[in-house]
């Protein structure tokens, strides 16, 4: 497989090229926000970003060689984590603010108008602060994003068919490649061996925090949809339904 013979440098170069373009909300934001208007803007942006996320995933070396079922499972499990990590990356140089897009920036206080969202904003801001303290580099960021995608669904059931088994093996090799790439990116920072190991650990530990915020966010969005605060449609609805039905 080509990705197993690819150097970590080449792997990072490919995932850097896969990065989605900057996306704009392109709405006239009427402030102050209402609960409905803020949720509508957030979900509109998420829906646009999701379409680009599929295209991004397809450019991760080896992803399209996985079975279609595995591709679908991985994306439906990680989509909100990926959106949140992107949000943290855009916000890393803006303490106290969440940069959802260049034309849609919110302070934590603006979260007050949506019931239950300030808690999520605070968790997002806390993780962003941690990335700021660590001085997260772009190469590390793209590796973490690919790790979230590839590590999102470790199925508990054993592969039943040859195709499933092959796809599972490809996925494990892909995870090896992305870990190698992150280790390589860290090795370029001029740290001691011990500091490199610690940095790898700290970055990996942040992923569990992102999974936790994503679960909170998923519950929040499902509640907002159930209460008819926001109309969820298109790809976002499909991803949300997939998630809630698999967890119920």
């Amino acid at each position: 497989n080509h990705q197993s013979t690819m150097s970590p440098e080449e792997f990072i170069s490919r995932i850097m090229e896969a990065e989605p373009p900057e996306i704009y909300l392109m709405e006239d934001l009427k402030k102050p926000f209402t609960e409905a208007s803020m949720m509508m803007s957030l979900t509109n942006l998420a829906d646009k970003e999701l379409v680009l996320m599929i295209s991004w995933a397809k450019k991760i070396p080896g992803f399209v060689e996985l079975s279609l079922a595995d591709q679908i499972h991985l994306l439906k499990c990680c989509w909100l984590e990926i959106l949140m990590l992107g949000l943290m990356w855009r916000s890393v140089d803006h303490p106290g603010k969440l940069i959802f897009s260049p034309d849609f920036k919110l302070s934590r206080e603006e979260g007050q108008c949506v019931e239950g969202i300030m808690e999520i904003f605070d968790m997002l801001l806390a993780a962003t602060s941690r990335f700021r303290e660590l001085k997260l580099q772009r190469e590390e960021y793209v590796c973490l994003k690919a790790m979230i995608l590839l590590n999102s669904n470790l199925s508990t059931s054993s592969p039943q068919t040859t195709e499933e088994l092959e796809s599972r093996n490809k996925l494990l090799r892909l995870l090896d490649s992305v870990i190698d790439a992150l280790v390589w990116a860290i090795s370029k920072l001029g740290l001691s061996t011990q500091q490199q190991t610690l940095r790898l650990g700290h970055l990996a530990m942040l992923l569990s925090h992102i999974r936790h915020v994503s679960n909170k966010g998923m519950d929040h969005l499902s509640n907002m949809k159930r209460k008819n605060v926001v109309l969820v449609y298109n790809l976002l609805l499909e991803m949300l339904d997939a998630n809630t039905s698999s967890s119920s």
């Binding site: 646009k48 680009l52 599929i54 295209s55 399209v64 994306l75 439906k76 499909e238």
Partner: peptide, 24 residues
């Protein structure tokens, strides 16, 4: 088939090569 039915848009986007910008 059920997986494809449940994730129609996702399935379509994964399978086709149309520019995602056009679809958005």
């Amino acid at each position: 088939t059920s997986l494809k039915e449940k994730h129609k848009i996702l399935h379509q986007l994964l399978q086709n090569s149309t520019s995602p910008v056009d679809l958005a």
